[in-house]
Design a protein around this nucleic acid. Sequence first.
DNA 1: CCGATATTTGGTTATTATTGAAAATAGGAA
DNA 2: TTCCTATTTTCAATAATAACCAAATATCGG
Lengths: 111, 111
Amino acid sequence: MTDSGDLNKNRARVLKALAHPTRLFLVEKLNEGECCVCKLVEHINADFSTVSRHLAVLKNAGILEDEKRGQLVFYRLRCPCVLKFIKCIEEAVRTLKPKRKKQAGKVAGEE
Amino acid sequence: MTDSGDLNKNRARVLKALAHPTRLFLVEKLNEGECCVCKLVEHINADFSTVSRHLAVLKNAGILEDEKRGQLVFYRLRCPCVLKFIKCIEEAVRTLKPKRKKQAGKVAGEE
DNA sequence: CCGATATTTGGTTATTATTGAAAATAGGAA
DNA sequence: TTCCTATTTTCAATAATAACCAAATATCGG
């Protein structure tokens, strides 16, 4: 990359944070409004700690922010643009029906 | 995830394919028009094989398609929506300035 | 202070990603 | 055919992710 290196690094950072089914689910859920971790966990078939870590990833990417009130920690989207962003993904996914010979799911180094 | 599991898996698949600086660079470049691998390699500080693999990842995700003409292989975007998609990322990145690890306190209007 | 609840963190393990070098493949040229 | 040239694939090593469980932390209520 001769130019726009940092730019793409930043882009990639945000994309990477979102590139997980559970994290997308969390973002979707939080788009409805802030929510505490225990409530989120109810909807996800995974360990409490796992959910907590996913939330941390999104927070570190700048997508979420958290606030502790009492014993609960509430997470919320830091900006509504993320939703628009997801909509874009949606369109892309719809349009990019991979014409696959075998599989289109692997990202690298497949068998 | 009780619902929308597959949907988010598909979303995540596309996001994951894009979540790499080099691959974003390739998508950007190809938005200007189709290009053969050797030309792309010139702009990227990486091994030929590395670039080829990144292109394969994007192709498997349905984002690119390729066509061999002579000894050259040309890659191109499969749909223009990807560019719009990148624009969305751009907006998100601009808005979501990631917080630092340590955030002593919130200063109003901190930018 | 003590116990209960909510959340994060550390340890461990398994899986997946990334890369350069080298080997394999494919098509054009000599 | 044999040699190039462009590209892909394999190999081997390393790094990064993701998941679970258990332990640590923090806060509330008594």
